[in-house]
Write a protein that binds this DNA or RNA. Structure first.
Lengths: 194, 194
DNA sequence: TTAACATACATACAGAATGTATGTAAATAA
DNA sequence: TTATTTACATACATTCTGTATGTATGTTAA
């Protein structure tokens, strides 16, 4: 019965992917683990062998999502050499990634609720949030920024990106909403320059 | 056994207040309705008589919270005659209210998760969110604003206020964090003037 | 090479919590 | 004063999560 390492990795992958779908569609609380394992062709035993509990499964999914988003932010920002332009591109990259159905709810809605804001923030600190803060610190060190608290600024911007993404995701004309939002962000960020 | 109308109103009030405490301390999912009714000195029958289910109870609590916050925002904003100053005072009022323990989690964390972002937004549309949007519309109509989408701007600002509040609430020196945040907000809002 | 052990599950069960159906006493309406 | 509705209590059904245990197979060490 026991599988070799490749098979094992495959079941874990399948569980993660199917769980991500369910969390995306139903939201954390309405996901039935029995459904997940049935789709994956295993039983609850398998799931509880690889993950501590429902939260543990969700945590693994969330970490995947956060990493994916952070990578996209980073690769978008890398398209410019100007620190301000990098910031803008990163913001845009984040919003575009967060809009997506398979990221939105897990990352922005259920994440904070399942783990509490503090833990969720700590997790995010290692991903997109960190990138945002580091970029702002970099800019500040170069002396190009208005005299504002980088910490406060980071959370201010982070929050606006989150909510903007949720709003855009809901609009019928997402292209236009994204453009409107990017205009606001561009304008705001421009105001932070010295 | 049956109570008169005053007694009935009192049980409802007690249930709401105790539920609000529990939701504040434990978060929605970890609240046990049995605990709530025991504290209130009634049984689950009473609770299910007055509220459809756990969500219904939470909805009633959330609506109370939202209304309280909206009232504070409004009364703060009313302290000035200048539309820009009103906006700023309103933002400050919102953050100060949202920081509070008994509002924070219910309003900003569990609300969206329990109802989904769309429903939660729709509820908020009748309270603090509405005030923010109306104020921005007012300013725009007076022709004092940079050419930006009011809708996009509303969500941008709303999100930043939410996240800022959560951040401040977590800091050891809340006074300073609030001040730093208000500096950012002031700066940003200033940039929207024509 | 084989005995000992660890791993990857399956199965069955316990426990907690929500929600529902029903009963009942008291207030209110007719 | 009778009928009806209201405000609960009680008991039960249901639905999950999580845990304890069993088992077959891969892996390792003597």
């Amino acid at each position: 019965m026991r599988k070799n390492k490749e098979d094992t990795a495959l079941t874990i992958e399948r569980l993660l992917e199917l769980a991500r779908n369910q969390f995306t569609n139903k939201g954390y609380s309405k996901v039935n683990l029995e459904d997940v394992v049935r789709e994956a062709g295993v039983t609850r035993g398998a799931l509880y062998h690889h993950f501590a509990n429902k939260q543990g499964l969700f945590r693994a999914v969330l970490e995947t999502v956060q990493q994916e988003i952070a990578e996209r932010v980073q690769s978008e920002a890398a398209k410019s050499d100007d620190v301000w332009e990098q910031l803008l591109l990163g913001c845009r990259g984040f919003v575009c990634a967060a809009i997506e159905e398979r990221n939105k709810r897990i990352m922005l809605i259920d994440g904070p609720a399942v783990f509490g804001w503090e833990v969720w923030r700590a997790m995010d600190e290692q991903n997109s949030m960190r990138l945002l803060k580091e970029q702002l610190q970099l800019i500040e060190q170069q002396g190009n920024m208005q005299p504002l608290s980088v910490e406060a600024l980071t959370h201010f911007l982070s929050g606006s990106l989150n909510e903007s993404a949720l709003w855009i995701a809901q609009q019928s004309n997402q292209t236009k909403s994204l453009e409107d939002t990017m205009n606001v962000i561009t304008h705001v960020i421009h105001c932070f320059k010295c």
